[in-house]
Amino acid sequence: MNLWLTAATHNATQVDYLIFALVLISCAVLALVFGLMLLYMFKYRAGSDIDRGTLPRKTWRLEAAWTAATLVAFFGLFVWGAKLYLLLFQPPADALQIHVIGKQFMWKAEHDGGQREINAIHLPVGLDVQLVMTSEDVIHDFSVPAFRIKHDVLPGRYEALWFRVDIPGTYHLFCTQFCGVDHANMVGEIVAMPKADYQKWLARSDAGETLAAAGKTLFMRYGCSGCHGGDGAGANQSQSTVRAPSLAGLYGSPVTLADGRVVKADDRYLRDCILTPARQRVASYLPVMPSFAGEISEEELLKIIAYLKSLSQQEPS
């Protein structure tokens, strides 16, 4: 019986410290509670004729003392848990992105180079890795106990998760949100390998096109280029009469919306622009872009977004 779980990332060790602290505090509290209970049960059992003195009259000092002590302890635990949580969920910039799609009952992953895998993800150690996750049907949850991290994967939006693996190895991947009959079989493995091996793995697996290249094809096929121009550079360069914003350099930059909000153009934003353009109209353009919801599948969406991102890497605005 193995009572130990590898802590394969730096943050996993941090989470372990928190859990161990909680265990220690609990043991102390239990020692106090059970200790006093047993002591009093013995000392003040009805049969014992120990001198019990008189009863204390006022109790509020004691009450205030233990309320305050509990409050302080709780506040400490809250702060510790919260700080670490913020760390766990604030992705570092320029992490290696891997795209994950959950569906009943499998995990599909796509690397930027176009490598695809099912119920397994290969990744390098020592590098920040960010997962951009969505679901094709119900809510799933991407969980790797050895990394002490998990997050729900919802249909209709992107959720992100990041970690940096320190120790190479093969780790369990579980779906931990009940998602239907075969929930228990929606499992897989995470293979963390040294960078060189990872490169070899990338090269070996037959990738085909990169995501961005495939995305470019789709960008043409779905007629995006009709408004946004052949290379997404804006309507002025296209033959179309529609005036549509340039998409080059868009990713990562702030966008002013028609209702005055300013939002950052991240994966989620791009996705929403394509599927539900009515929810966020770009300022000073006519609201003519149609919704592509139901037409573009999650996997195609990934590719189109990869293409849009590649546009901003070429010519930053």
Partner: peptide, 15 residues
């Protein structure tokens, strides 16, 4: 209290 501590819950929730 374990599962109320955010970072600990991330690991322990749904288990």
């Amino acid at each position: 209290l374990f599962v109320a501590a955010l970072a600990a819950d991330v690991h322990l929730t749904q288990t």
